Structure formats: structure tokens, C-alpha cells
Simulated assay, not measured.
Amino acid sequence: MGSSKTHELRNRILFTVFMLAVYLLGKSILLYGVDTSDRSGMNGQYMVTMMFSGDRYHNTLMALGIMPYINASLLVQIITAFRSSDARAKISKQRSDRWMFITTVVIAAFMAVIQSADVSLLPGAGPETIVRGVVMLEMFAGAMITYFLCMKNEDLGVGASMPIILVNILTSLAGSISANHFFRYPRLMVVCAVVVAATVFMENSIIKIPLQRVSIHNIHADQNYMAYKRNPVGIMPVMFATVAFVIPRYFVRMLTLIFPENVRLAEIRKDMVMTKPEGIAIYLVIVVVLSVAFSFIMLNPMESARQLQRNGDSIIGVYAGEKTKKYLVSLVWRLSLVSGLLQAAGMALSLIMVLRGEVSLPLAMMPSSAMILVSIICSTAQEIASYRRYDAYKFFF
């Protein structure tokens, strides 16, 4: 009887490397008829979303990048979370994947229409309507390729969509650091260092809620607990705040296409940027609101309380039922609010520098990029550690 190792970690890392190679290849394929010398896309809106989009100037096959996928993922999770526990139990993996696919198609098509209208075309590329149609289809195709890469990486690789976001962040950071002379701004460097340290602590720190389980009566009974991270949903609020901030801009842009002569719409679109106090305030409020909202949607403390009562378990020192629900709701509320405020504060420090004219917006986005980067690294490291432990087992057959 021999033994064999699964090499699960090695196989998953190799697949993720392959997935990233395909994605990077797509980033090197230029869209047909697009003027690559035009840099007008390098404005505040695109700097905010550059970590999610495929390229800086939106002129390659991966122009939409991962935004349709992550938006679809978020919507499906929210819809699922609002269903009852019995209804969620009946949702199969195939059904959930079908919802993801349909939602991604709708979002990718909408974004392709809006984004293709903003690119500059070469004069001799052909009739403008046809060329823009081709560009729109190419953008849509790139978004769907990214969707399939993420779905396959979720099953066969490491980190699902996180490696693509990591690549985009590293690309944007490298460009911003070299082009904007990051090391000439010691205050911004201090802000980034503080943000990184706080994110590492929050990502690797948990609060243990001791449980009394009726089915466990042994020497390990006192080791049962519920665990909540100090930032309950990680860096999701910062990631999706950037998306939520530009969604209204997409709709305003669509209205300007329908009503090109409307001066007021053009002014509103111009004012929806993060270089003005109003835009910054809206962005920071979105971060805090999403932190609280995502925490209640993903953790669902009311459902956790019902499950504990249904199983006959309880939190030590807290009565089951309504008391447990109030305790968990209060805990999630405090954790999410503090986490959101800390994340917003880290962003506020750098964005205030923009208002004062001390740094440019690309540099001001460094703290948010650093938060997301560190969060991805921590979560990926934890996933890799779990696969390594799996590989440590020897299977006999």
C-alpha cells in the first residue's frame, strides 16, 4: 500500500499563472481603429477605477477589465442574502452561476456601449458608426473572457478574481509612483505606511465569541466560538465605493449621448469628480455606508442568531433568541462602523492633500490601492496556507 500527495497547491498556482498570462495577453491586444495617442481617458473618473479596468487608457481588449464580473458577483450575493435560509438552501451552484452569467452579460453590454462612445478613433479606420460598433463588441468580448477566466480560477486556481485585481493594482501603482514622483511626498508616504499597518492588523485580527454547544461535552467544549474579523467584510467597501462612485457618472454620460445639446447634463458630468469637496465627501460616505451594509448582508447576524437557537446552542452569558440577536446585531454594527470610519479616514487624509494642491489625484489614490493590495495579499496567503495544509496529508490507496 503506497501513499500519494495531491499537489493541490502547485496545480492551483500553475492554473492561476496561466489565467494571468491569458489576461495580460488580452491587455496587449489593441482595439480596432482606436487612437492610442489620445490620453483624454486619464482623468479623475478612470484613475478611481483603474484598479478594476483592464488598461489605463481603455484602448485594449480588456478595457472593461474585471468591473462587470465583480459588479455581477456583488449583485448576486446581495440578492441571495435577502432570500430566506430555506430559499438559499435550494439555490444550486449551477443556478447561481447562471445568474452570474446573465448579470455579467447585462453589465458588460451596458458598460461597453458607454465606454466605446468615449474613445477616440483614427480618421482612416472606416465609418464611425461601424468602427464604434466593432469597438463595443471587442470590449464586450474582453469582459466575457475575463468573466470565464475568473470563474475557472475560482474552481481550479487561487484567489478567484483577486489575482487580476492584484495585477491591475501593481500596474497602476508602478505607473503612478514613477510618473508622479511618489517618494517626494513624505506625508503621503506616512499615510500609506499607517494604512498598510492598520489593514494588516485588521485583516489578521479576529474577535472570538465563546459558544456553548449542546452536542459537545468533552475537553474541547471551551474552545468553541464564533469568529468575526475586526473589519468584517475586509476591503470590499473601498473596492466597491470606487465603483458606486462612478455608476451615476455612467448614467449621466448615457443621458448626454441621448441629449447632446443639454448643457446642464454636461456640467453635472464635469462636476462628478473626486477633486472637489462634494465629490470627496460623497465618496467617503459611500465607504462607510457600504462597510455597514455589506457587513449585515454578508454576515447576517439575525440569521446567525436564529441558527444558534435552532441548534440549541448559545453564546456564553447571553440568552438565546432575541437577546442573542440584539447582541450580534450590535457587535456587527460596531465592528462595521469602526472599520468603515477607519478606511474612510485613511482615504480622507490623502484626498485633503488633493484639495490643497499638494498631490495629484493619482497619488491620492495610493492609500486605497495599498489597502486593497494588502488585503488581497493577506487573503491569498491564508488560502495558500489552507491548500498547503491539505497537501500535507498523505492519502493511502
Score class of each variant (00 low, 15 high):
residue 319 Y to P: 00
residue 20 L to S: 11
residue 19 M to H: 10
residue 223 Q to D: 13
residue 395 F to H: 13
residue 253 R to P: 04
residue 208 K to V: 00
residue 388 R to C: 02
residue 284 L to W: 10
residue 209 I to G: 06
residue 145 I to Q: 07
residue 132 R to P: 11
residue 190 V to M: 06
residue 316 I to V: 15
residue 29 I to P: 05
residue 210 P to K: 05
residue 231 N to C: 10
residue 273 V to Q: 02
residue 10 R to Y: 14
residue 264 R to S: 00
residue 174 A to L: 12
residue 310 R to D: 11
residue 178 S to K: 05
residue 18 F to G: 09
residue 53 S to I: 08
residue 306 R to S: 10
residue 191 V to D: 06
residue 257 L to N: 13
residue 238 V to K: 04
residue 352 I to V: 08
residue 130 I to T: 15
residue 337 L to S: 15
residue 380 T to D: 07
residue 12 R to N: 11
residue 377 I to K: 03
residue 64 L to W: 07
residue 117 A to S: 14
residue 100 M to D: 01
residue 397 F to R: 08
residue 173 L to I: 01
residue 166 L to A: 09
residue 381 A to L: 12
residue 223 Q to A: 15
residue 1 M to A: 07
residue 173 L to F: 08
residue 127 P to L: 14
residue 364 A to T: 03
residue 395 F to P: 06
residue 147 Y to V: 10
residue 333 W to F: 14
residue 378 C to W: 00
residue 185 Y to W: 10
residue 182 F to P: 13
residue 359 V to P: 06
residue 195 V to Q: 03
residue 85 S to N: 12
residue 269 R to G: 08
residue 396 F to P: 00
residue 340 G to T: 15
residue 180 N to R: 01
residue 291 S to Y: 05
residue 90 K to A: 15
residue 303 E to V: 10
residue 240 F to G: 03
residue 64 L to Y: 03
